[in-house]
């Protein structure tokens, strides 16, 4: 269980290697992710999040340092092996839908990897069931909502039975309901299969669900820790341009107003739980 599934070692990447005056998109970044973890990579626009995603799947190669995944060092040779073991979901639901219908899209990665037809049929059904989209087999993309399209994209990634799922801002273009759908799907998936998930996001509410958060700022790792640890810094995150989850902001504001809230609360439920028992505890 405790094997390292993805690691960055002193990774530096710049889009303009000739121009030293421009700050690298990612600088001296090191971290490692164990199998079975849910990691959230958060940061403001321009903090290097998306570049990290591209480094993870070999769309970009670092100028210095080493990216390794599934015990293989990322290189032109190992690239396709690594890709076949990781799924990725991007930001725009429309622009990653390749197939003409839901089932075609889910099968796309399987076709690319030469999976035999009988096996494909089974896997398409199975992965659509995992994201609760099995009734939509023959639907065309323009008849689906954003959240549904993202769930199909997740199913498309799952069909390959990857060891790692990377969500690159997968919820940022969705309405609140679609976002809930997708997050809920990921949560259930993790419960069911224990899949390793890396979600790259600027939504701290989503990040709060992860096991560990890596906060990025200006291409460097700013902080790393459990959501509790990271959110404790409170205002520091706000200065990085990140919005704290509503419950946390509320807690801070209540404290400022002189209400002695005890814990740090990540979700509304927890906060409500403390508040309604507030007087009886005293």
């Amino acid at each position: 269980m405790n094997s390292i599934i993805m690691s960055f070692k002193d990774v530096t990447f710049t889009y303009t290697p000739d121009d030293q005056s421009v700050r690298p998109a990612v600088a001296d970044l090191s971290f490692s992710i164990e199998e079975g973890e849910w990691i959230a990579l958060v940061g403001h626009n321009g903090s290097g999040k998306s570049t990290i995603a591209k480094l993870m799947n070999g769309l970009l190669f670092p100028q210095a340092g080493e990216v390794a995944a599934m015990n293989l060092t990322m290189s032109e040779e190992s690239l396709w092996d690594i890709r076949s073991q990781m799924g990725m979901v991007f930001q725009n639901p429309d622009n990653q839908f390749v197939g003409a219908t839901v089932q075609d899209d889910v099968a796309f990665a399987l076709e690319n990897n030469g999976v035999p037809h009988e096996e494909m049929v089974v896997r398409v059904k199975e992965s659509l069931r995992q994201v609760k989209m099995e009734e939509f087999l023959d639907h065309e993309p323009h008849h689906l909502s954003g959240g549904q399209k993202q769930r199909v994209a997740i199913a498309g990634a799952l069909a390959l039975r990857p060891r790692l799922l990377i969500l690159d801002e997968a919820t940022s273009m969705l309405d609140p309901q679609g976002r809930m759908e997708v997050i809920e799907t990921i949560r259930e998936l993790r419960e069911e299969t224990g899949l390793t998930v890396i979600s790259i996001t600027h939504d701290l509410e989503e990040a709060a669900l992860a096991d560990r958060i890596i906060v990025m700022n200006a291409g460097r790792k700013h902080k790393e820790g459990t959501p509790e640890e990271v959110f404790l810094t409170g205002n520091e995150l706000t200065t990085l341009g990140l919005d704290l989850p509503f419950a946390m902001r509320m807690t801070h504001l209540l404290r400022e107003a002189g209400v002695q809230v005890l814990g740090e609360h990540m979700t509304e439920d927890e906060l409500v739980e403390e508040l309604w028992t507030f007087y009886s505890k005293k």
């Binding site: 769309l59 076949s84 990725m88 991007f90 622009n95 390749v98 690319n112």
Partner: peptide
């Protein structure tokens, strides 16, 4: 975007 998504999915 589509080209990236396709490449990542092993096309």
């Amino acid at each position: 975007d589509l080209a990236t998504a396709m490449e990542v999915r092993g096309y």
